[in-house]
Simulated assay, not measured.
Amino acid sequence: MTTNTPLIELTAWMRGRLAERVARLIDAGHDPHTGPDLIITPLGTTGEPGTRADRSCDRCGRFVSQGCILYMITVQAAPRVLCVGGLCGACRRLEDGWQA
């Protein structure tokens, strides 16, 4: 099995969010560390396709209107857990370590 290594150090917010997601999976009776199946979970809140929640940044909650880029990301939270979400441009720069 291949493990992805982050090219950047995760922010405190992202580390906390990933830990929260893993803790919720454990509380629900899932083992995020062993087993054959990959668990895919949202990074933030989810919404029906096309709703404001569906196009809102998972970090700051800002609505990203059509025509603007909502950056889709995936982050491995544990060996069997992949978190997927979306970030606005400002939050993506924070998470990528870019200078504003």
Rank of each mutant, 00 (worst) to 15 (best):
Asp27Met: 07
Asp27Lys: 13
Ala28Val: 02
Ala28Glu: 14
Ala28Asn: 11
Gly29Thr: 03
Gly29Tyr: 06
His30Pro: 00
His30Asp: 12
Asp31Thr: 03
Asp31Ile: 02
Asp31Val: 03
Pro32Arg: 07
Gly35Met: 06
Gly35Val: 08
Pro36Asp: 15
Asp37Ala: 14
Asp37Ile: 11
Ile39Ser: 04
Ile39Glu: 06
Ile39Lys: 06
Ile39Pro: 04
Ile40Trp: 03
Ile40Phe: 00
Thr41Tyr: 08
Thr41Leu: 07
Thr41Asn: 11
Pro42Thr: 03
Pro42Ser: 08
Gly44Arg: 04
Thr45Glu: 15
Thr46His: 02
Gly47Ile: 07
Gly47Ser: 10
Gly47Pro: 09
Gly47Asp: 09
Glu48Asn: 12
Pro49Met: 01
Pro49Ser: 02
Gly50Cys: 08
Gly50Ala: 05
Thr51Cys: 05
Thr51Pro: 05
Thr51Phe: 06
Arg52Cys: 09
Arg52Phe: 11
Ala53Ile: 08
Arg55Tyr: 13
Ser56Asn: 10
Ser56Gly: 10
Asp58Arg: 02
Asp58His: 04
Cys60Lys: 09
Gly61Val: 08
Arg62Leu: 13
Phe63Asp: 06
Val64Met: 10
Ser65Ile: 11
Ser65Asn: 11
Ser65Val: 13
Ser65Pro: 12
Gln66Leu: 15
Gln66Phe: 15
Gly67Lys: 03
Cys68Tyr: 12
Ile69His: 11
Tyr71Thr: 13
Tyr71Phe: 12
Tyr71Met: 09
Ile73Val: 15
Ile73Tyr: 07
Ile73Gln: 09
Ile73Asn: 06
Thr74Glu: 14
Thr74Cys: 04
Thr74His: 12
Val75Ile: 12
Val75Arg: 12
Gln76Met: 11
Ala77Cys: 05
Ala78Trp: 01
Arg80Asp: 01
Arg80Thr: 03
Val81Asp: 00
Val81Arg: 00
Cys83His: 02
Gly85Asp: 03
Gly85Trp: 02
Gly86Ile: 00
Gly86Ala: 09
Gly86Phe: 02
Leu87Ile: 02
Leu87Val: 05
